[in-house]
Computed example of a mutant assay.
Amino acid sequence: MVKVKNIALGIYIALIAFPFIYLLILSFSADWRFPELWPQYFGLRNWSRVISGETGLLSSFVLSLVISLSVATSATLTGFFISRYVNYHPKKRLWTLITYFPYVLAPVVFGACLSFYFIKVGLFGNTAGVILSQFIIAFPYALIFFSSYWGEQTREYENLVATLGGNPWTTYTKVLIPMAGPLMMICFFQTFLISWFEYGLTSIIGVGKVETLTIKVFLFIKEANFYYGAMSCCLLILPPALLIYFNKKYVFNKLI
């Protein structure tokens, strides 16, 4: 019975790992055609082109990092502070309902609706416009995420600090932010992933000029360049994998 469970677990792990292993093998390959079981070339040639900047993947990777870090940082910080006022507001239910509006429409449709206003203010087809458009969908997520934090217990802590003579600055820096530290890290990870994998809004607002890593993946797939597409996917998986590891090792252990 134990052997059967171990075999089943091994098959399960192999099925999960196979797509990632295959992508990694494909990224080192060239001239791999059916029905050949092994590519004619297997080496570092593709990755050397990435490092040299020939494929544009390295610049797209850095650009995606800048955009995602900007969106995650701004959405987490503003979401944390503004969520307090939303949850303590007399019309909390109304504001919470409005918060869900960006998720009613598909990202492509939502991007098409925003494009008119972005053209008017000069944010269409540039990096700043992409960051702002992604912030518009990441910020409501942060508001919803932090809504459970602002409960009666948190309010009691605020009242206690005020009773002891603390000002709002002391309340935030000494009590509220340290208490919410792990939650803020999780929200940062989540909003980072929202931005990192975003394609619809980026393709509409960026209008092909802002080539993030997700845009590169689809471009290579459309060109039937599977080897560069596999490299793009490997680079696309790397930051989320590191965030999951960091989240599990440092943040999740604090919460439990």
Rank of each mutant, 00 (worst) to 15 (best):
Y22L: 15
D31H: 10
L15A: 05
F80R: 00
P35I: 14
T55K: 09
S70W: 08
V50K: 02
S29T: 09
L69G: 00
L65D: 00
Y12E: 08
V66N: 12
F80A: 00
I16M: 14
G53P: 01
A75I: 02
S52T: 12
I21V: 15
P19E: 12
I13H: 14
I25E: 06
E54P: 08
G56R: 01
F34Y: 08
L26Y: 10
L77G: 10
Y12Q: 13
L15I: 06
I51K: 05
R49T: 06
T76A: 11
S64Y: 04
L69V: 12
L69M: 10
P39G: 13
S64W: 03
R49E: 10
V71R: 02
A14M: 11
S59P: 03
F42H: 07
L44C: 01
R49S: 07
S27R: 02
D31S: 14
T73Q: 10
S52I: 06
S68E: 07
F18M: 15
L15F: 06
V71C: 07
L65N: 03
V50F: 14
A72K: 03
S27W: 08
W38C: 06
Q40R: 14
T73N: 03
V50N: 04
I67D: 04
G56I: 01
E36M: 10
L63E: 06
A17L: 14
R33G: 06
V62N: 04
V66T: 09
S59Y: 02
F34V: 08
F18W: 15
I13R: 11
G56F: 00
R49V: 00
F42V: 14
R33P: 00
L69I: 15
V71L: 08
T78V: 12
I13P: 03
I21H: 09
L24C: 07
G53D: 01
Y12N: 10
Y41M: 08
F61A: 05
L57A: 07
S70L: 07
L57N: 04
R45A: 13
I16W: 09
V50E: 12
R45Q: 11
T78C: 15
I11S: 05
I51P: 01
L57Q: 03
L77F: 15
S29L: 13
A72G: 06
L26D: 01
L65Y: 03
G53H: 11
R49I: 00
Y12C: 12
L57M: 14
N46E: 06
S70R: 07
Q40K: 14
Q40G: 09
L37A: 11
L58N: 12
R49D: 08
R33I: 07
V66M: 15
L15D: 04
P39D: 05
Y12T: 10
F61Q: 01
S29R: 03
S70I: 04
W32V: 01
G56K: 10
L57R: 02
W32L: 02
F81I: 10
F80L: 10
W38N: 05
W32G: 03
F81G: 01
F20M: 11
L77E: 05
V66I: 15
V66F: 03
P35K: 13
